[in-house]
Amino acid sequence: MTIERFPVEASHILMFARSIGDTNPIYEDAVYAKGTEVGSIIAPPTFAQSSAQFDPDYFLRPKPGQAWFGSAREATGIKREKKDGESSGAAAGGLHAEQHFTFHRHVRPGDVLSGTTKPGKNWEKEGKRSGKLMFSETITEYRDQNGELVITARGVGVRTERVIEQ
């Protein structure tokens, strides 16, 4: 995955902060932010994950003219035979197991980021509730308009043999 252009906008930061229930004025009030140590509006720590909005091929966003796997007239828009032993988690693209962010600095409105993702390690583990767990890691480097590294993100996805019931 490559994100060529992720323009960081104040309105997107506001929406993102609202979605995580964070009313901190540092995310929405430029006048307040100017008087703080930080000096301007910044994005919440996990905001970089919304780079998905700027990935033209992101598979978890419905696109006009393409079948979508969520429900409409039927419970799913994509008819597809499950392979033996494959879980529904796999059909939905697996689950998120870990996420790590290293902040070289904090993102501000006006930044234009780019993101380059490389595959990392792959490993397997036997789970108590879910059967075999297959982990895979990706590393994304977000750079700003000057080519400076801003955030390094490491994500780990997991596919399970069985749906995890609780």
């Binding site: 929406m15 609202r18 979605s19 994950q49 919304s50 998905a52 909005q53 978890l60 979508w68």
Partner: peptide, 8 residues
Amino acid sequence: GASGDYNP
């Protein structure tokens, strides 16, 4: 909506 992850 904010993150762009629309996994149903």
